[in-house]
């Protein structure tokens, strides 16, 4: 069991985490340490508890038991303010594309002129130039996903949680998002991302968390988990077989 901090900011540690509803354990994670520095990818079948784990790590729900620590301190408002999250189905404000980004920048009291620059830079990063004035709700699925990521990036987070950001996207849009994620990671943003796409995990992950029925069945370096999985559940999931 790793207890010692690695010194990399944004290290997330989970201890004795448990959530149960109606006698059924939805999440049961005795220990998990995400200490990067590269992207962590979370894999597992539907209902495994991946989204629930992200919500716990982001402090959106408090577990029945256990705690989440960042850099050795129980997750607090300061930490949360330096985390961004892209939800499995992102909610865009009923405003223009630019206004969705401006909303986040304004909250950081960035002066107006600078906000305009930042918005332009973000939009070009996500390939949404020319869409600034369009109503965010009228974007296509892939564009909306990209805007949700840009909005999370506008927070300049230390840690970025992404819940299946490419599950509904075509290969081109997926590639755009993967590039955005890798760029953020290269800039030092801690990435924790859920995916069902094993190829994507191979392309992005430095470490992989394999989940099944609320438990972490395996956590290790990407190459090792993908090529020589230790647990039977991982082997079956990766083989595409039925996991029971």
């Amino acid at each position: 069991m790793r207890d010692v901090l690695t010194g990399i900011p944004g290290t997330l540690e989970v201890r004795d985490l448990a959530i149960a509803r109606k006698g059924k354990a939805l999440l049961d994670v005795p220990y998990l340490c995400l200490d990067g520095p590269g992207p962590t990818l979370i894999l597992g079948p539907n209902g495994a508890g991946k989204s629930l784990l992200l919500r716990c790590l982001h402090g959106l729900i408090s577990p029945d038991h256990g705690r989440v620590c960042q850099d050795g301190i129980v997750l607090n408002a300061d930490h949360k303010a330096r985390q961004g999250m892209v939800f499995q189905s992102p909610v865009l404000l009923r405003r223009s594309v630019a206004a969705n980004l401006d909303f986040v920048l304004k909250r950081q009291s960035i002066p107006r002129a600078m906000r305009k620059q930042r918005i332009a830079a973000l939009l070009s990063e996500g390939g949404l130039e020319g869409k600034a004035r369009q109503s965010a709700r009228s974007l296509s699925g892939g564009e909306a996903q990209r805007l949700a990521i840009l909005r999370a990036l506008a927070l300049e987070p230390e840690t970025l949680f992404l819940d299946e950001p490419t599950s509904a996207l075509d290969p081109g849009a997926t590639q755009v998002i993967e590039r955005m994620v890798l760029r953020a990671s290269a800039k030092g943003v801690r990435i924790v991302m859920v995916t069902h796409d094993i190829g994507q995990a191979r392309r992005l992950a430095s470490d992989i968390v394999m989940m099944q029925a609320g438990r972490v069945v395996e956590h290790g370096a990407a190459g090792q988990v993908l090529d020589a999985p230790e647990s039977a559940e991982s082997r079956r999931y990766l083989a595409g077989g039925l996991v029971t």
Binding site: K80, A81, V91, V104, R107, R151
Partner: peptide, 27 residues
């Protein structure tokens, strides 16, 4: 209901969410 988690994730408090919601419900 729709905005709750997203706004919390963006660090918007419950009080601060009122003007956001009123504006977004303007139509």
């Amino acid at each position: 209901e729709e905005y709750a988690e997203q706004l919390r994730s963006l660090g918007v408090s419950q009080m601060a969410s009122v003007p956001v919601l009123l504006w977004d419900a303007r139509l």
